[in-house]
């Protein structure tokens, strides 16, 4: 099987540009990159069919060696339709992102950032809760580098959550 060198070079260029573009943060560029990748793949499928030959099934007496393999073209047709649908959907999403956030960039995950910022010390799981839970705590634990009564440590899920409430004397603790 011989291959068409021009097709191969174009395919390589499309792959290179496509991969470069999908690594960008701008959604429009990512979409362009995906389109280039899909088209490069179509060229790859086309080149698996070998050199351009005669049309298959056109006349009955065409020798089999002169046919162009029709299957890759059928595969390409399917994959073009699929990438068309996906591109249309991506454009919709990009427009929606623009309407909602007025920006074209891929946004960070809020919950991911929150988990990343959570300290490894978790008061409810990690604090040493004393066996005696009287109203007048005698035991103190070291939580987050500070000495505090065990009750406070247990109530404190994240640093700062408790400090929002004002203390009994009116000031903040």
């Amino acid at each position: 099987m011989s291959v068409n060198l021009t097709l191969l070079i174009v395919m390589g260029a499309l792959y290179a540009c496509g991969i470069y573009l999908i690594l960008e943060r701008s959604l429009t560029r990512v979409l362009l990159g995906l389109m280039l990748l899909a088209n490069a793949t179509n060229l790859l499928i086309l080149s698996t069919g070998g050199y351009a030959g005669l049309a298959p099934f056109f006349t009955k007496d065409t020798p089999a060696a002169d046919y162009n393999d029709p299957l890759p073209q059928a595969l390409i047709l399917t994959s073009i339709v699929i990438s068309f649908a996906v591109t249309a959907f991506m454009l919709g999403i990009i427009y929606r992102t623009w309407v909602l956030a007025r920006q074209d960039d891929i946004q960070d995950d809020v919950e991911d950032l929150r988990v990343a910022e959570t300290p490894s010390f978790d008061a409810e799981d990690d604090a040493e809760i004393p066996a005696e839970t009287s109203e007048f705590p005698l035991t103190t634990v070291t939580a987050g580098g500070r000495e505090m009564p065990a009750e406070l440590a247990a109530a404190e899920e994240q640093p700062g959550s408790l400090n929002l409430e004002s203390g009994p004397e009116g000031g903040t603790k």
Partner: peptide
């Protein structure tokens, strides 16, 4: 939030589909 998560999901899925298609082309070749 859904659009934000959807973008990640769509891009990753499309890339994996392109990889699958490349693999099919290679297998066929």
């Amino acid at each position: 939030p859904r659009i934000r998560a959807g973008v990640t999901y769509v891009v990753v899925s499309v890339v994996s589909s392109v990889l699958f298609l490349i693999a099919i082309a290679m297998v066929f070749g």
